[in-house]
């Protein structure tokens, strides 16, 4: 739990905007712009933010589902560091054994023409692991692990499963190769609350049982608080705050985090929404506001916020610097922001 598994440094992913007949390059959508964070063995790191903030793109770029525009993604495999951002596609393939993904939509992420057995077995076939019989036994074991009865379900097709069961199948597939890191992209947001709780519990049990590390991409702050050890908040392609869950939720350092926390409607009528929420809309990543991207919506904005882009503070490096609570705000150390109140 004390060693780093992944070091993301200065990660960038730009999508070019092309215009006109000659497809002239006129600008970039800076979906991920200079994002850095570390992930430690066995922890759950949350990536949160509103739509268009780049949280999903960050996850995909780490996996090399998308090729990064710049930056480093150092990943520890068998004790050696590999830069996933710069290796060739052919060299990437064997790396994928070690990092897997769970997707948001359990209806779109399973092939409707394959049986559950085929779906879960596919990674084993791709990496030539075991004989046919061994593979089948492994599939049965995996289904058991995620709480599906293998005898009953192995031969069935995805359409006969509910959303929660499908998500379990997706999880079994991600586990097939014994990965070190799982990037879970909104794994529970398509599920009903009673089913969502089951899947969250399953993910936590699997983490303890198999020593998994998660990057958990989500927008639901209640879920994130529940499952994550540390959280990175993103706004229009940049990290605005990073820290331990409790630090970030109870004493946020960035006004955007404060706004986000205050906007969540809580299942408690005693905490009714405050009428003074944050105004305006999420900025366009193709046309970022100058300085701090949040300044047009920020209640604390001053002149400097329009002119200069704030740097991430180094934070109070407690315990080997790992739990530093960082915020990218000019006034991170001066403002006293309200987090989630104590009842």
């Amino acid at each position: 739990m004390d060693e780093k598994l992944l070091q993301v440094a200065g990660l960038k992913k730009f999508f070019p905007i092309k215009k006109g007949f000659r497809r002239k390059h006129v600008g970039d959508v800076k979906a991920v712009d200079d994002v850095s964070f570390d992930v430690y063995d066995g922890e759950t790191l949350g990536l949160v933010g509103e739509s268009g903030c780049g949280k999903t793109t960050t996850g995909r770029t780490i996996m090399r589902g998308l090729n990064p525009t710049g930056g480093q993604v150092l990943f520890r495999i068998n004790g050696a560091w590999k830069d996933l951002a710069s290796i060739k596609e052919g060299e990437m393939r064997p790396m994928r054994r070690h990092l897997q993904m769970i997707f948001q939509d359990p209806y779109a992420s399973l092939n409707p023409r394959m049986t559950v057995e085929q779906i879960v077995k596919e990674p084993l076939i791709c990496f030539h692991i075991g004989s046919g019989r061994e593979q089948r036994a492994r599939v049965a074991e995996l289904l058991e692990v995620v709480g599906l009865n293998p005898k009953r379900y192995m031969e069935r097709y995805p359409h006969s499963f509910s959303g929660g069961q499908r998500q379990r199948i997706g999880i079994a597939r991600a586990l097939a190769l014994n990965p070190d890191l799982i990037i879970a992209d909104e794994p529970v947001s398509a599920l009903d609350v009673s089913i969502q709780a089951q899947v969250i519990n399953l993910l936590q049990d699997l983490q303890t049982d198999f020593g998994l590390t998660y990057i958990f991409v989500a927008h639901d702050l209640g879920v994130v608080e529940h499952i994550c050890d540390r959280i990175a908040v993103m706004y229009v392609g940049k990290l605005v705050e990073f820290g331990r869950t409790e630090d970030l939720f109870y004493s946020p350092k960035h006004p955007y985090t404060e706004a986000l926390l205050s906007a969540v409607p809580r299942p408690d009528p005693r905490h009714r929404l405050q009428s003074a929420g944050v105004e305006g809309e999420v900025a366009d990543p193709a046309n970022r506001p100058s300085g701090c991207a949040f300044h047009p919506r920020c209640a604390y904005a001053q002149d400097i916020c329009k002119r200069e882009e704030p740097k991430m503070t180094t934070g109070q490096a407690s315990e080997e610097g790992r739990y530093a609570h960082q915020g990218a705000c000019h006034f991170a150390d001066e403002l006293t922001l309200t987090g989630v109140g104590v009842d």
Binding site: G164, S194, A197, I200, V223, E225, F249
Partner: peptide, 27 residues
């Protein structure tokens, strides 16, 4: 239903939030 929603503010005091209560089975 109420017990299965992860609530904001559940980790006050740095405790881990533990397991969520669930409703058994599927719809």
């Amino acid at each position: 239903l109420l017990a299965s929603v992860p609530k904001i503010g559940s980790r006050i005091g740095g405790q881990s939030a533990g397991r969520l209560q669930t409703i058994a089975g599927d719809i």
